[in-house]
């Protein structure tokens, strides 16, 4: 017989994997996905308990988790975008300005060389010609 404990075990595994993902991966989006996966583990637990106790409260909780996750996703993605615009990367490690004064910045031992990316395409405002960088006009 598949009992509640089986479901709880699966939930625990998902939760743990999500936690590890959150702690290790440096891409903001992957971190966020990991956090969502932790929520999935929790949701499985809630639904299993709901069934075990024979009422609906666990499912209601899961529903709220989904709602909150949706909000979270919206806000988080908006934040990621604005962060990305500032530093042109999704690496969470570039945001460490809140460290103690006098502590060295944590950097990678051998950073990968990445090609600089172009800026976001800029839409022309009506009536004004877009300014171009100097080299381009010279060419």
């Amino acid at each position: 017989m598949i009992t509640i404990s089986h479901y709880l075990a699966v939930g625990a595994v998902l939760f743990t994997l999500g936690l590890i993902g959150f702690l290790t991966r440096r891409n903001l989006i992957v971190m966020f996905l990991s956090a969502e996966m932790m929520l999935q583990g929790v949701a499985i637990n809630f639904v299993a308990f709901s069934r075990h106790h024979g009422n609906m409260h666990g499912q209601v909780f899961t529903l709220f988790i989904i709602a909150v996750a949706a909000c979270e996703a919206g806000i988080a993605l908006a934040l990621f975008l604005s962060l990305y615009r500032k530093k042109r990367t999704l690496d969470v490690s570039v945001w460490q300005d809140l460290r103690e004064a006098g502590i060295d910045e944590t950097t990678d031992a051998q950073p990968l060389t990445t090609t600089p990316e172009d800026a976001d395409p800029i839409l022309t405002k009506a009536g004004i010609a877009p300014k171009r960088p100097l080299e381009e006009t010279n060419v």
């Binding site: 290790t24 891409n27 903001l28 999704l90 690496d91 990678d108 990968l112 990445t114 090609t115």
Partner: peptide, 14 residues
């Protein structure tokens, strides 16, 4: 965020 090519963020773990 057009991820083109390998990046520090994705190829390393903390």
């Amino acid at each position: 965020s057009h991820q083109n090519g390998p990046s520090n963020a994705d190829l390393r773990s903390r």
